[in-house]
Design a protein around this nucleic acid. Structure first.
Length: 496
RNA sequence: CGGAGUGUAGCGCAGCCUGGUAGCGCACUCGCCUGGGGGGCGAGGGGUCGGAGGUUCAAGUCCUCUCACUCCGACCA
């Protein structure tokens, strides 16, 4: 990775078609990623340091994620609520381990009024200094824990299952659109149970939902497992994580569930009177996935022509391009409009791109945005009652012409097939780039040779003193101990 | 907080060494030809050169100060 961009256009291979994104993944993965985000019109940097502006097409993806997952949570019994953005600092400082994990990246609100600085600007008013500063939430365990302590009295109040869709702020040193931003959007579930089993079942159940969501809607798979102690959430007993492999072989933690044990119950006094009439500590959990997942979608699926959207969360599943010539324009447009209506009536998310632009530009726009199916209709097709479509996941070789009614009938199947193809592709990549190793020498040799992917080693390797040096040398981290290996193996990789 | 850079049109950059009318590509606007994988010709609009001060007849260019951002390190969903 990170090789300088090569100019190979000129001499030898003129045949190689120009890619929509430069540089290519091979040339410079990090820069390629930024360009995909820009070209797809997902988001851009904002005047606010570390915070991004998520543009309508990018936000539509997040809305889709919310729509689907929110329903699943409700089916599971979770209720949505909303807790304050600002958390009293004293709440935060109460849980020592939690503080240690987050203190370094917290923004703090210290004043409640601005005044003129006498130089045409503004400054916080000295006499408006807050007695107790507020922390902009980096996560909400503390303030929700405090609420739960008041809401839970009896075992009859349990389990208590709460969730909020919100944004949080973590003052990151280096940021990258979607992957690491100071402000990010997520959902955070906070649940309380009578005992450890309730909490652990909850963690596993929700992780199951994440896994289902990622595979069935986002078309990518990963490794579900338990985090090593060093990587466990501050204050948690155990963290389960879904680790996905990006196209550059690096890991992305796409979702986590935390068994918080009684840590927060102790600190915030979350107790209940049990059937035995005695007071007990609750076992709490928290879990989340964030807008970071959109970054994962990109690094998982996009190619050198830009984004490829998994059909089930694609804001636009089908885009219809009219191929207009002056004399037939009106008729073709009407024909397209009717098809758009018919497809919408069947529940597809369709866009009729009737903008006043040149056709090739519209095509590339659809390609870069990753619209799963592009339909083209010109006077030729119209006369025959046909249309031509191209699958984004395959490209121009998939160009097919068929009768309009037939397409309307088959569209769902095509979208499903695109989904299956994309999922299979990412699974194949993941499997081909996950290797079993047994020694630290093998780990070192692998990364020294600049190979990419995950290494799966016996957990005993964590005890070896020499591991740390190698991990540091190659910027490696332990990802998780996969459930599929019964916790006997640990995954080691570079990560985002 | 260490180390290295960059601020000139919406975006990407040249111009600075050697001071002398503000440039290029893309994007944008208008017209015509085009239109099934980024097309052509022509005509336009758009700038407090990051900010402040200084040297000079003259500063984007030289000097001083300042602000902002980016990259590389340590930390992280």
């Amino acid at each position: 990775m990170n090789k300088p961009a090569k100019q190979q256009q000129g001499q030898n291979n003129k045949k190689k078609p120009r890619t929509a994104i430069t540089p290519t993944r091979e040339e410079d993965f990090a820069e390629w990623y930024q360009q995909v985000v820009k070209s797809a019109d997902f988001a851009e940097n904002s005047p606010t340091r570390g915070c991004m502006i998520i543009k309508p097409y990018g936000w539509a993806i997040w809305e889709k994620c919310q729509e689907i997952f929110d329903k699943w949570l409700k089916d599971y019994g979770v209720e949505n609520a909303s807790f304050p953005l600002l958390i009293p600092m004293s709440f935060f400082s109460r849980e020592a381990e939690h503080v240690e994990g987050f203190a370094k990246e917290c923004a703090v609100v210290t004043h409640h009024r601005l005044e003129s600085d006498g130089k045409g600007g503004l400054q916080p008013a000295e006499d408006a200094k807050l007695e107790e500063p507020y922390v902009v939430r980096p996560t909400s365990e503390t303030i929700i824990g405090d609420a739960m302590s008041r809401w839970i009295q009896s075992y009859r109040d349990l389990p208590m299952q709460l969730n909020q869709w919100a944004q949080v702020l973590r003052w990151e040193m280096r940021t990258r659109l979607f992957l690491r931003t100071a402000e990010f959007f997520w959902h955070e579930g906070h649940n309380a149970f009578e005992d450890h089993k309730g909490a652990d079942d909850d963690c596993l159940h929700v992780m199951g939902l994440y896994e289902k969501f990622f595979t069935e809607h986002l078309a990518f798979d990963g490794f579900v497992g338990v985090k090593t102690p060093e990587e466990t959430f501050p204050g948690a007993n155990r963290t389960y994580a879904f680790e996905a492999m990006m196209q550059d072989g690096k890991a992305l933690q796409a979702a986590t569930t935390h068994d918080l044990g009684t840590t927060f119950a102790k600190t915030f006094n979350i107790t209940y009177q049990g059937r035995d009439e005695k007071e007990h500590l609750c076992h709490t959990t928290s879990w989340a996935f964030s807008t970071r997942t959109i970054g994962g979608l990109i690094m998982m699926h996009a190619d050198d022509d830009g984004m490829i959207m998994p059909p089930r969360i694609a804001p636009q599943q089908i885009i219809i391009l009219p191929i207009v010539k002056e004399d037939t324009a009106e008729a073709v447009q009407a024909f397209c409009a009717k098809l758009t209506k018919d497809l919408k009536a069947k529940g597809f998310r369709v866009k009729f791109d009737n903008r006043d632009m040149r056709t090739p530009d519209k095509m590339w726009d659809a390609v870069k945005k990753g619209v799963p199916i592009r339909v083209e209709i010109g006077a030729r097709e119209m006369e025959e009652g046909q249309l031509t479509y191209v699958r984004r996941d395959i490209g121009r070789e998939s160009k097919t012409t068929l009768a309009v009614e037939e397409f309307v009938d088959k569209a769902e199947g095509i979208l499903d097939d695109i989904h299956d193809t994309m999922l299979a592709r990412t699974r194949k990549f993941r499997d081909e780039n996950t290797h079993d190793v047994t020694s630290i020498d093998e780990i070192e040799a692998f990364f020294k040779a600049e190979k990419i992917g995950f290494l799966r080693a016996p957990v005993a390797i964590l005890e070896d003193d020499k591991l740390e040096a190698v991990m540091k040398e190659y910027s490696l981290s332990t990802r998780n101990m996969p459930n599929a290996d019964k916790g006997e193996k640990v995954l080691i990789a570079k990560a985002y």
